[in-house]
């Protein structure tokens, strides 16, 4: 799944550690989401959306090349 987390975080001048603390996860989790190695759970995606004031679907998008069957 593609996401805009890195861009949105950069706009706020937050480090991965700061963002991680704000949503209650580890820095490694934020890094894995930004590098698209890990897709966050729905609660975490909603929490990120609320934090950045964006709808979830604006932050995350399905990668058309990935099989989501």
């Amino acid at each position: 799944m593609k996401n805009r987390l890195k861009v949105l975080r950069a706009e706020q001048n937050w480090t991965q550690e700061e963002l991680a603390q704000r949503v209650g996860v580890s820095r490694q989790a934020i890094n894995a989401i930004e590098t698209e190695k890990y897709d966050p759970s729905l609660p975490l995606a909603i929490k990120l959306g609320k934090l950045f004031g964006k709808p979830v679907e604006e932050m995350f998008a399905l990668d058309e090349n990935t099989d989501h069957g």
Binding site: G24, V25, S26, A29
Partner: peptide, 8 residues
Amino acid sequence: NMDEYQRQ
């Protein structure tokens, strides 16, 4: 005590 990524 882990977050969802560490638990995964």
